[in-house]
Every structure is written in structure tokens, then in C-alpha cells.
Measured scan of single mutants.
Amino acid sequence: RERTTFTRAQLDVLEALFAKTRYPDIFMREEVALKINLPESRVQVWFKNRRAKCRQ
């Protein structure tokens, strides 16, 4: 699998959701994945990595 490159628009949507909740449930992830045209698994990993970035 190639490394996913997120567009600015995708990142804006993800960051906005992250500001609301750091742990979105499966339904929220599915919804945002459809909206920004990414698989739900990529959204899940993005959140995992974003939380890790926050902890540093």
C-alpha cells in the first residue's frame, strides 16, 4: 500500500473533527470517511497518529 497523502481539504475536515472529539466512534469515522473520500481505516489511523502527536 502506498503512503496516503491527505489533501488540505481532507486535513481541514479531520482537524475540525479532532477539535470536537479526539475519539470519534465508528459511525462518526464512517461519515467523515465518506465525506472526504477516504477509507474508514485511514481515518482511524489518522486519529491514532494525531493523538500520538498531541502527547509529544
Score class of each variant (00 low, 15 high):
N49C: 07
T4G: 11
L17V: 11
V13Q: 08
L11K: 09
A19P: 03
R29M: 14
L11M: 07
R22C: 07
L34E: 14
A16E: 09
L14A: 02
V45F: 14
F47G: 00
V43R: 00
D12W: 01
Q44D: 09
V13R: 07
R55N: 10
R22H: 14
F27K: 15
T21A: 11
R50K: 11
P24A: 00
R50T: 07
E15A: 00
R50E: 15
N49M: 11
E2K: 08
C54N: 09
A19I: 07
Q56K: 06
Y23W: 11
Y23R: 08
C54Y: 12
Q10Y: 01
N49E: 15
Q56P: 15
S41I: 06
C54F: 10
L38P: 02
Y23N: 10
Q44M: 09
S41P: 12
R50H: 06
I26M: 05
R55E: 12
N37W: 01
R8V: 08
F6I: 11
Q44F: 12
R3I: 07
F6Q: 03
E15T: 02
N49D: 15
F27A: 15
R51Q: 03
I26A: 10
A19Y: 03
A52C: 07
N49L: 10
R55D: 15
K48N: 10
R55F: 11
T7H: 04
T21P: 03
P24V: 02
F47L: 07
D25W: 00
R22Y: 04
E40M: 10
K53L: 10
Q10L: 02
K48T: 13
K53M: 10
I36Q: 03
L17Q: 11
K35C: 03
P24K: 01
P39S: 11
F6C: 07
A16F: 02
R22P: 14
A19F: 06
R29T: 12
R1I: 13
L38Y: 04
A16D: 04
E31Y: 06
N37T: 05
L11V: 10
I36V: 13
F6R: 01
R3M: 10
Q44P: 01
K48C: 06
A52W: 05
L11G: 07
F27E: 11
Y23F: 14
D25G: 04
V45Y: 12
R8C: 07
V43Q: 01
E15L: 00
T21R: 05
I36F: 09
V32N: 03
P39C: 04
I36A: 13
L34F: 08
M28S: 12
R1L: 14
D12S: 07
E40D: 07
D12P: 04
K20E: 06
I26F: 15
N37L: 05
T4V: 08
A9I: 04
R3Y: 11
Q10N: 03
P39N: 09
V13F: 04
T7M: 04
L38A: 15
A33Q: 03
Q44E: 08
T4F: 15
E2D: 09
F6D: 03
Q44C: 11
N49H: 08
P24T: 00
V13Y: 04
N37I: 00
E30M: 12
L17G: 01
V43N: 03
R42K: 07
F6P: 10
R1Q: 10
W46D: 01
A9G: 07
E31G: 06
A33G: 12
A52G: 11
A19V: 10
E2S: 07
E40R: 03
Q56I: 11
N49G: 09
Y23K: 09
R22W: 13
V43A: 01
E31V: 05
F6G: 03
R22Q: 14
T5L: 07
R8S: 12
L34V: 12
R8Q: 15
E31N: 09
A19G: 07
N49Q: 14
W46F: 03
V45L: 12
E15H: 03
V13A: 12
K35P: 00
V32H: 02
F6T: 06
